[in-house]
Deep mutational scan, measured.
Amino acid sequence: SRYQRVDEALPPNWEARIDSHGRIFYVDHVNRTTTWQRPTAPPAP
């Protein structure tokens, strides 16, 4: 859903941030990219 819980676990090396307008975006520290779409953790084997 559009309103996912912010405290749900993100994949490793990802961080949720809030911009100056109060919107949540996500930072990938490995690839040094950002996205508005919440990343999903790969399925557990």
Rank of each mutant, 00 (worst) to 15 (best):
W14V: 07
A41D: 10
F25A: 04
N31W: 01
T33W: 07
S1R: 10
N13M: 13
G22K: 04
E8S: 10
R23S: 08
T34D: 05
W14N: 03
R23K: 11
V27Y: 12
T33E: 09
A41K: 09
H29E: 08
R38A: 06
P43D: 13
A9K: 15
H21W: 07
H29P: 05
A44I: 14
Y3R: 08
P11G: 04
Q4L: 14
V30A: 13
T33L: 11
L10R: 01
A9Q: 14
R23G: 08
W36N: 12
W36L: 07
D28W: 00
A16E: 09
T33N: 09
V6G: 14
R17I: 08
H29R: 11
F25T: 06
A9T: 13
Y26D: 03
Y26N: 00
T34L: 02
R5W: 02
D19P: 00
L10G: 02
Y26L: 00
T33M: 14
T33V: 13
R23Q: 13
N13P: 05
Q37D: 02
R5N: 14
R38Y: 04
A44D: 12
N31P: 01
P43L: 11
Q37V: 14
P42A: 10
E15F: 00
N13Q: 15
A9G: 10
E15Q: 06
Y26R: 01
I18K: 14
I18E: 11
I24T: 11
S20N: 07
I18T: 15
R23V: 08
N31C: 08
R38V: 05
W36Q: 10
Q4D: 12
P12I: 11
A9D: 15
T34S: 06
S1L: 14
L10E: 02
N13L: 04
D19A: 03
A44R: 11
R38T: 07
Y3A: 07
T35E: 04
I24S: 03
A44S: 14
N31L: 07
I24Y: 06
V27D: 01
I24D: 04
R38M: 05
N31Q: 10
Q4E: 13
R23L: 04
N13A: 06
V6W: 02
A41H: 12
V27R: 03
G22T: 00
P42N: 08
R17W: 07
E15Y: 00
S1F: 14
R38K: 13
D19C: 04
L10V: 06
P11N: 03
L10Q: 03
T34I: 01
E15C: 08
